[in-house]
Design a protein around this nucleic acid. Structure first.
Lengths: 253, 253
DNA sequence: CAGTGGTCTAGACCACTGC
DNA sequence: CAGTGGTCTAGACCACTGT
């Protein structure tokens, strides 16, 4: 029986070519990122051991280790003690999507930012466990007087009692929370919906128009802070993300 | 005149409390992430200098430096030579969105994956500079025989001539490209569209139904490889992202 | 020009794990 | 149990930058 396992494979002749640009650990990282990106190293292939790279590159172990750890953090390789470092299998991939605070986003586009609170109401939720009292807000954000974002928000008054005293007539609740309430965990969901009657009226679009909906739930420890639905007319808003070469996991083209 | 500038502010008494769990550099990183998350340290505040932390924590500079560099990579702090490390201002934030290979995503949900190539055609694009010949594909992905994803793809035959000889009848083009073509850069756009007649027919939904559209453009160096539009019925597909505590930049609740 | 972070070295000990 | 990566130390020199 052949004892050579597929994941033990290591390209026999692997000259590491550094580009001489920037810090040494970054050059090493880029060199392997290039090889992986170009399929010169394939998923499952073993990289040289740290001590081999230390010898061949005539450097110290910290420098090599830093390069390989960066690759591991980016998901390009997997490191296992006693076994070595291996090119990661490619299944899913993650792309960073940037979601801006409405005011910044609109002003960055060179437009005049406008804000209006449409409604504010205290509620006692029928379902949900943690919150006894909830503040519900509906707000409209405009760019050059044109509605571009409908915000439906629920704030947990048990966790944020001070919110009950705020009118939110001048300051959007997102910005108020940002300044006043600490949080440490958030969850996002992006989906597409057809505008219902109320949404369509607020955004001055036809009912049924496709809209992008971003749901964000925010926690502080175990306590739920707020849940917000941001509804953008689909043709006016796009969320964009970009890879930087060799800095992310690979995926399906 | 008072020479103390606002960004020079540093909380005078800043006891760093480590939780004693895990590597030291990680404990230090978490300690400051906690302080920032809880607004104990506010945007613009200066963190202690490296040499101060080395003294107060009785450790080495490499360890402190590694913790602070991790915070800088996560966007929680900004580091400036000669000035110090400061809590970052919070404007936008990024959330990682996971986009799976259709087959994996459907099979992970415990459903039967199905695939059908609807059309394949060579085209000569009227606009666009880099590609003279383009292969256009329309494919349908199903879960338990139900259409869940329409894929419209364009492949640059100048960069990937081998694609012309593939039928793509059994193997989705995304998986074929993943196995055969290296790439190193990708750009994503997420938007909402109403289904047109053709899309609605393919996905067996009513025309005008809101759909989530993910556009991905892929490059290898300067050469464009492929552009794909993935169209999901809005109610069936959500893209989800999540923060891990203290590992990401802060933003608007 | 002085003080900060950025990088690097040559060691060390330890935890885990595959054999 | 031997070999790998994970972490850490106590130094060093350098680049940048604010004053």
């Amino acid at each position: 029986m052949n004892s050579a396992k597929p994941w033990m494979h290591c390209v026999p002749d692997m000259p590491i070519t550094l580009d001489g640009d920037g810090p040494l650990h970054e050059q090493i990282r880029k060199a392997f990122a290039r090889k992986i990106s170009a399929r010169d190293l394939k998923p499952g292939d073993r990289l040289p051991f740290e001590h081999e790279l230390v010898r061949s590159l005539n450097t110290s172990r910290m420098t090599v280790s830093r390069a390989l750890q960066a690759l591991a953090e980016d998901g390009l390789i997997v490191r296992r003690r006693k076994a070595g470092s291996f090119v990661a299998e490619q299944t899913a991939f993650e792309t960073p999507v940037t979601i801006h605070v409405p005011r910044n986003q609109i002003e960055a586009a060179g437009k005049r930012y406008g804000y209006k609170r449409l409604s504010k109401a205290k509620m006692t939720p029928v379902s949900q466990g943690s919150a006894n009292h909830v503040l519900h807000l509906v707000c409209l954000h405009t760019a050059d007087e044109k509605p571009v974002l409908l915000e439906k928000r629920w704030i947990n008054l048990d966790a944020v009692p001070a919110a009950a005293d705020e009118t939110f007539k001048g300051l959007p609740p997102g910005e108020w929370l940002l300044r006043n309430v600490p949080w440490n965990e958030a969850e996002h969901t992006i989906s597409a919906i057809g505008a219902d009657e109320e949404t369509a009226t607020c955004l001055q679009i036809k009912p049924g128009t496709a809209c992008l909906k971003v749901d964000r739930r925010t926690w502080s420890g175990d306590a739920s802070i707020t849940h917000v639905s941001l509804i953008y007319p689909g043709d006016q808003m796009k969320l964009a993300g970009q890879y930087r070469p060799g800095q992310q996991a690979l995926s399906a083209p």
